[in-house]
Every structure is written in structure tokens, then in C-alpha cells.
Amino acid sequence: MPVLLDLFLTFLKIGAVSFGGGYSMIPLVTEEVVGKGWMTESQVLDFIAVSESTPGPVAVNMATFVGATQGGILGALISTFGVVLPAFVIILVVASVLKGLLKYAPTNAFLCGVRPVVMGLIVGTGVTLILTVIFGLSRISDSLSFDYRAFFIFSFVAFLSVLYKKMKKRTLSPIVIILISAVFGIVLYGFL
């Protein structure tokens, strides 16, 4: 099979079956790209680290990277297209069906039950991240190690957000928050 077609079909499959996004798709991607001889297992691990420090969804990053190394710019484009296509089509279908379904009481009842749960999941994710980043606690068996630098950055952007909201009556742009965090990261971890 020509490599471009192979790339497209492989990432189409990955895009179609990875639920929940992000890290849940890593085992599947590893299996596929290692099995096809496109990357070694340690390259995959390295790349996941890179993917964490570059913007964008892990799945998309992975597709672009594997595509680029196997088929240049065209490979990158085709793999990325493949990984995004299933999500795009499925959401279009769901969104257009939902429009009609929202007229019915059961749909609304279902969504009413779901809403607080989704908001709870966001807060839960935030708390998990805080435990990992500030307290070094990603598993219950880990020993507590307090990272005062991370705590300082967290407190600083929280304080700044509240202050900005009070003074300007607008929400501080997330770009500003990310940039400030990055600068503090370099200064605190690199020079202190």
C-alpha cells in the first residue's frame, strides 16, 4: 500500500475509535505506529513529552509528526486530515440531529442531568492537576513534595485574575495568563 494511503487510513482509524480524547488514545497510537515500524517505543515516549510542551491536542500532534517523518509535508497534512475527519463528521451529524431533538422533554432532561456532572469533571481535572503540579501527588502512593515555585505561579495568576476582574470588569485573557506562567517558569526554575 502506498505510504500516504496507509498513513491516512491508520489515522482515520485512530480518530474514529479514540473516545475521551487525549491520553486514552496513546496505547492505540503506540500499537499502530510501532507495529508499522514508523516509530520505536522510546521515540513514542519522547514524542509524548514533546507533545506536552507544544500546543494542540496530542492526537493531532502525533498524526502530524508521524506523517511528517514518513511522508514529508504531504504526509503531515494527510495524517492530520485523517485523524480529525471522523470527529468532524460525527459532530456535524450529532449537532444537526440535536437541533431537532432539543424540542423534546427527555433530551432536555438528559442534558439537565449531565450539566453539573460535566462541570464537576472540569473541577476534578483542575484539582488533579493541582495535586500533581503543586504537591507532586499524581498517585495515592506518591510521597508529598511541595513545589513552592508552582504554588507561587498558581497564586500569582489567580490573584492577577481576580484583581483584573475587579478593576476592569472583564475577564483576563487566557493568553496573558499562559505567557506570564511561561515567563515565571523560566525565571523560577531556570535561575533560582
Binding site: G126, V127, S161, I178, I186, Y189
Partner: peptide, 28 residues
């Protein structure tokens, strides 16, 4: 330095996520 910047960003992002969840809930 890319690594250090990322350490900082993780701390900032954990605030962004937590505040998004709480803010949404307060509107419910």
C-alpha cells in the same frame, strides 16, 4: 528553557481549568 517554561505553564493551566469549572457551576 522550553522545559522550564512548560513547568510554569502547567501551574497556570491548573488555575485556568479550576476557575473554568467553578465559574460554570456558579452560573448553574
Amino acid at each position: 528553557y522550553v522545559k522550564y517554561a512548560f513547568y510554569g505553564i502547567r501551574a497556570g493551566v491548573s488555575f485556568l481549568i479550576l476557575s473554568a469549572g467553578i465559574r460554570l457551576f456558579l452560573k448553574l
